[in-house]
Design a protein around this nucleic acid. Structure first.
Lengths: 251, 251
DNA sequence: ATCACTTGTCTATTGAACTAGACAACTTGG
DNA sequence: CCAAGTTGTCTAGTTCAATAGACAAGTGAT
């Protein structure tokens, strides 16, 4: 069944990009097949052994590719049964009380927030305007990656006034939640003031963080959260994987 | 200088795509740097040792990346001296007498034509119209990759009437030139009747053959060649790497 | 001519990708 | 329950990416 020459096989060559591993090529190939709509949501993929035979490849290699698709949130694999396409989207309801962990928990998934990076910087005109600060005022900038069931959902850049929340990064890293971080600073109730939604495509950096290919669609969500007394607290620019999330706005 | 942990190093992570080799990431990164115009044509790149240090990587890995850039025709490496950016383009003059090997030889390079694939097929409406055949008539289809100094310049699909040139693929594979192939069939002088030029982007297949990234610009050149008596001989749809070729049309 | 610098080549080692095969654990349908 | 089919895991071996170091061969400037 398998050829003896691992190099110049037959049906591998049309994928084989120089410097890219086989399993990655297969994963990308299947992602295209799925995203182009050849499988419906919940449809069953062929068994690993069959896929392996079709590509002229070992089953372990296919398993690696499937693991990748699982990590990308495109496929769910069930032992003894098979692998199933998963293209349904998480409903992300935007309202006054928008809390990532609550939304994800309500949908029956496990929420996770990881701080990817942080720094102090002078406020841009935009950020200063939102937070009611002077341009150039010291602000804390956080880069946060959020995931549901280990599948990346969004990357968000959040700015807070450094005067009040200088150690926000340290606190967030420990508490792993914006809600709990603000709680730590004595802000118990905060509310969404406004939300601005646009769209775009992944750049190389976000694609890597979100485990997406480049040029996949993203939803860009800018927002401002305020305290109970209307005082601006934080402004955020989030990029949501449009393949995995739908934003719900009640009206 | 080098960290002891090969996994979670420092300045590697921003490149590291899962399932993509390190040298490929570095090559792609440098390609971007060059194509974005940060180096002029003929500019000298930093020595390999310095690049290696900057990426936190072994010099051999950088050498692999440079070899890749060489194969893509973006860089020329000179022993003992250094590596130099090569973004000048081959002038490809289109006229009545358009012969790839002559154009390349005149520019002082070594021409090469490789048959990538071939088959008989029924003529499409377009091909039939060009060659003066009935739709569905048997035609020979050749896929030819052309290179100058081992750097891919174009991929071309060529159609000939199967009635007259049934074994064209076999002949071309031996003689490695359209001119010589037609000579073998007794056609000594052929001339370009018309040429149609448009543009587009590489798909995955052409990108692989031309050793280009996907979404690089290509020049699409459709043409018809006729015998001395005006009889249509072959029609071609060529895709030229716009990064490496400029088409010259005299008027 | 010499010397610093750069690329080319060689050897050796480590770890990961991929192959190969076997068997356990689980699901599904009869 | 049983049997066929499918995924999960384990061991073993080969190939190749990447590291590490050393030295040869060539270039360019003083």
């Amino acid at each position: 069944m398998l050829t003896r020459t691992p190099r110049g096989s037959s049906n591998k060559n049309h994928l084989l990009a120089r410097g890219v591993m086989l399993w990655r090529c297969i994963a990308d190939d299947y992602e295209q097949t799925i995203l182009v709509g050849k499988y419906e949501n919940g449809a069953k993929l062929p068994p690993e052994s069959e896929i392996a035979a079709r590509y002229g490849v070992n089953r372990h290699t296919v398993r690696r590719a499937m693991a990748e698709l699982g990590a990308r949130g495109l496929v769910r694999t069930e032992r003894g049964s098979g692998s199933y396409v998963k293209t349904d989207k998480l409903d992300y309801r935007i309202g006054q009380r928008t809390r990532f962990s609550e939304i994800v928990a309500a949908a029956g998934h496990e929420a996770e927030g990881r701080l990817q990076g942080h720094r102090h910087e002078p406020a841009s005109e935009e950020v200063a305007g939102h937070l009611g600060l002077k341009i150039g005022a010291d602000v804390v900038r956080l880069e946060i990656l959020r995931a549901a069931d280990r599948v990346p959902i969004s990357v968000a850049t959040t700015w807070l006034s450094a005067a009040r929340y200088a150690d926000a990064a340290k606190v967030f890293r420990r508490l792993r939640s914006i809600t709990r971080t603000l709680d730590h600073y004595g802000i118990s109730g905060y509310a969404r003031k406004w939300t601005r939604i646009s769209a775009g495509f992944t750049d190389a950096v976000d694609a890597g963080r979100l485990r997406l290919s480049v040029h996949r669609p993203i939803l860009v969500v800018e927002s401002l959260d305020v305290a109970g007394d209307g005082e601006p607290i934080l402004t955020t620019r989030g990029r949501f994987a449009a393949d995995r999330v739908a934003l719900i706005v009640e009206s």
